[in-house]
Design a protein around this nucleic acid. Structure first.
Lengths: 145, 145
DNA sequence: AAAATACAAGAAGGCACTTTCACATCAGTT
DNA sequence: AACTGATGTGAAAGTGCCTTCTTGTATTTT
């Protein structure tokens, strides 16, 4: 219907006969980088889903000014946050989740819940898998009694 | 409680006073790579959430054998898919979403729905943002009548 | 006058993720 | 005897994200 042409080096192919996987991957690419989810969930917890630059910086240990700036720009570009500059000195800038950004919180919460419920299982699966790799080389194929 | 030591270079810090953002980011790191979501959603659509290697390969245009193998290994390691090798010649291998993997489909569907509903808005926001950058240099600050 | 503030952009480098290409298996087919 | 099929591994190269460091502003404080 609408010829969507942009997107980060994604072939305009409808995978599996649907366009959903393509678009979902774009979303995951957008939100799955190192810092975006921290920004989104941090803003979500603050009153009015709003905070200034330095507040977010403090809320996310380890983030650099550069990455905070860049991540906020990306989210702003995608319409998920707004940026409001108050021309004071020193400057004050407030970021806020847009309604679009807040609408993303619901499905995000679904992921949060899934992780809360199931992450332990994932870690166990990893431990078991890694254990098998290192020590138990002998398997049914080679273990002909 | 349990000293989890592995994980992709993540500081053991509880961000925002919760551990959720950390774990969610781990999940997004896991599932947010270039191909994982295609694999998961492809398997989800197939009968029994099960398919062989070459079927998945055909279902995902552009994926290389190497990336398909590696992505499947990662998902297997995390307990999201199982791998069953039939020692035939030529070999046959079937992959299937585990119950853990299938439980992830529900929150994933939440993302799919959000994208279906809102992605157009994201694209519009991007277009508008990119437009402002290029041409409309003059803003309220410099435009003192 | 020098320092601190709050925010942000630029350059340079490292590292991780991806891609591409080649190679290996082993029975059945030509 | 060479080829094909189905799955997978290894090496090498490319690409882009992320980190770190530096520079900048204009006012208030010391």
């Amino acid at each position: 219907m609408n010829g969507h042409s942009k997107g980060p080096h994604l072939d305009p192919v409808y995978v599996c006969g649907h366009k959903d996987p393509m678009a979902v991957r774009e979303l995951l690419t957008r939100v799955g980088d190192k810092w975006s989810i921290f920004l989104i969930l941090s803003l979500a917890k603050l009153p009015g889903c709003r905070a200034r630059f330095s507040d977010i910086e403090r809320a996310i240990p380890g983030i650099s000014q550069r990455m905070l700036t860049m991540t906020l720009r990306h989210l702003e570009r995608d319409g998920l946050v707004t940026r409001e500059l108050f021309p004071e000195v020193p400057p004050r800038v407030e970021y806020e989740l847009t309604s679009l950004g807040r609408s993303l919180l619901e499905p995000m919460q679904g992921l949060v819940d899934w992780v809360t419920t199931n992450w332990e299982q994932v870690k166990e699966a990893r431990a078991q898998f890694d254990g098998k790799q290192g020590s138990n080389i002998v398997d049914a194929t080679t273990a002909g009694a």
